[in-house]
């Protein structure tokens, strides 16, 4: 068995070309999903309404189907939708010219919104009812009570799960290449194909993902530590 170390080192640096794409996908999806996910969580916690049912169905679908399938569905569906929109609005643009990143953004955002709304929903449920009551009894409006007392506490509970969702998102983006997006996997595959150095290429990607995920976890742990100050009980 021969392990081509030279190729290994080379590919390492070329693979980094795909890194910005991965990071962009992750960051964008997260930024959109955090507020939207929270909104959906709140909608699901309120009483019956048609919107709530719609949201629940959407979340159930996202959680019940593999991300690969979601990718393929969106990748086959959106272009035709865009084509009809272009036709209807008489826009002279070829659907195939659209940057595939757009589809990636759509899929990963839709996915993350659903997952985060579940995280927020259970996080809000962990805060004792008495906290809100005390706020109301002190004269705060319900909104103020949520903003100043309930939500900060819910965030601390949510943080570990948000970390999990983020690392899962990063791992999911490894599938973006199916939509011809030039992420790390795509770059590595191209490099590998030149000299049939598949193993080295994929081990390179593997290591890169481990590094990224570990960094993300460390980051979250730090943030969690700072936010958890109020939870540290004095040991007498």
């Amino acid at each position: 068995m021969s392990f081509n170390f030279e190729f290994f080192y080379q590919t390492f640096f070329t693979a980094f070309r795909g890194l910005p794409v991965t990071l962009k996908l992750t960051a964008f999806s997260l930024l959109i999903s955090l507020p939207l996910g929270f909104l959906f969580a709140v909608i699901r916690l309120k009483e019956r309404s048609k919107v709530k049912n719609l949201v629940s169905v959407y979340i159930s679908f996202v959680r019940g189907t593999p991300i690969v399938v979601q990718i393929l569905v969106i990748y086959s569906l959106i272009p035709s939708i865009m084509a009809s929109i272009f036709k209807g609005l008489d826009i002279k643009m070829n659907v195939f010219d659209i940057n595939p990143m757009l589809y990636a953004y759509i899929v990963f955002s839709l996915n993350t919104v659903a997952l985060l709304s579940e995280v927020f929903r259970s996080a809000l449920a962990t805060v004792e009812k008495g906290q809100l009551e005390a706020a109301q009894a002190a004269g705060l409006t319900t909104f103020q009570g949520y903003r100043r007392i309930v939500i900060p506490q819910a965030m601390v509970a949510a943080l570990p799960n948000i970390c999990t969702v983020t690392t899962n998102l990063i791992k999911s983006t490894s599938l973006a290449f199916l939509m011809t997006v030039k992420d790390i996997t795509a770059v590595a595959k191209v490099e590998a194909a030149y000299g049939y150095n598949y193993i080295e290429a994929y081990i390179v990607i593997w290591i890169i993902y481990i590094i990224i995920c570990s960094l993300v976890e460390i980051l979250f742990k730090l943030v969690e530590k700072r936010m958890k100050v109020y939870k540290r009980a004095l040991v007498s």
């Binding site: 008495g130 009551e133 706020a135 705060l140 007392i149 939870k231």
Partner: peptide, 27 residues
């Protein structure tokens, strides 16, 4: 009015001082 709860219901993310000032400052 003011309410004192059986299980205190102090705002767990605020210090004792902040717990007392919350109703004054915000409400």
């Amino acid at each position: 009015t003011a309410f004192v709860f059986q299980n205190y219901n102090l705002f767990s993310n605020k210090t004792a001082l902040e717990n007392v000032t919350e109703g004054l400052i915000i409400a």
